[in-house]
Design a protein around this nucleic acid. Structure first.
Lengths: 172, 172
DNA sequence: AATTTTGTACAGAATAAACTGTACGTTATT
DNA sequence: AATAACGTACAGTTTATTCTGTACAAAATT
């Protein structure tokens, strides 16, 4: 090997390492991120054993990681005639896939949590009617007001992320 | 206390618990999130000792948590005449503050990582010149192509998050 | 100047997360 | 039908994170 140069393997490793950091920002664990990037760089669908070998981790770990990535719709399983093992492939369109997955995660969570807060809000409304202490009344009205801010916060988040959804023009 | 109703304290706790989950989506740890929500609900600036008591955790933990929140610009220190201890307050404008902080985090990270990838790209370009094996050439061109996709990915992310920055109309 | 108070660095303990290897149910091959 | 191969559930181990209590430096009070 020539001096002052990197082998292809080293460059490969560097790319995986760096790009994994980016994917971790999409709330992937380091393992999930490395697994995805490995699949993405490999191009061809891979089996659990191949991933296990490529990352130097157990097959169980691969199985768990793939399960997470499947749940996030970042990876899909592939059927190939004559191949008995399960094959998995990373989607080619990084941007669309990650944005869609990430935004959906946000929307789901924001909706769920806004719902919980609204339930608490109705509890508060009931509670208000039973309060006689002026001090308590002041406290709970303060809480109610803040709760309103939180619910408004969820609405703004939801609107914003909805607007972020990749459109047809991002498909290319 | 009346049956089938919640005490103010219980409602308070529920709100903290639920809204913390939302804030964890902004890449806050559970502790950071609870700390922020506690400050936010309290309204008035709090000392480390008050937080410690409110959350039932050590003062060291509070000190660390506040440090993180300060770094994220989600909390600010407050000076009050006659009060010797440090006081901290959560910003009132949840949406603007969290969005701004979060987007900045994304932009910083995306820029940093795009920069790293571009450096690797230049290594690849150098390496290409020294390759004689056709097989290696094919491999490294494949890698180069994928790397291009990754860099493009960073650009799309950056553009998207820049567009998300809260504007003046969100100030209210 | 001496004493007290406050915030944080540090080391060790407690808690949580990730990983491994075996075991087992299921499905394909012979 | 018997055998072999595959994927995953599970329990135990390893690794990483979070938390606590003491110790100490900086600053205010006496």
């Amino acid at each position: 090997m020539a001096p002052y140069s990197n082998t292809i393997e080293e460059l490969h490793t560097q790319v995986i390492h760096e790009f994994s950091k980016t994917l971790e920002m999409f709330a992937l664990t380091p393992t999930e991120a490395r697994l995805f990037v490995t699949l993405y760089l490999h191009g061809e669908p891979m089996t659990l054993d191949e991933m296990s070998k490529a990352l130097g981790k157990s097959k169980t770990a691969m199985s768990n990681g793939i399960k997470s990535l499947l749940d996030l719709n970042l990876v899909e399983s592939v059927w190939k005639k004559g191949v008995r093992k399960d094959l998995y492939r990373a989607d080619e369109n990084l941007y669309r896939q990650f944005m869609t997955s990430y935004i959906q995660k946000w929307l789901d969570a924001a909706n769920r949590q806004a719902h919980s807060l609204k339930q608490i809000e109705s509890s508060i409304k009931k509670e208000v009617k039973q309060i006689e202490e002026p001090a308590d009344m002041e406290k709970i009205e303060e809480l109610h007001e803040r709760l309103g801010e939180m619910i408004r916060f969820h609405r703004l988040i939801t609107d914003n992320f909805k607007a972020m959804k990749p459109t047809a023009k991002d498909l290319v």
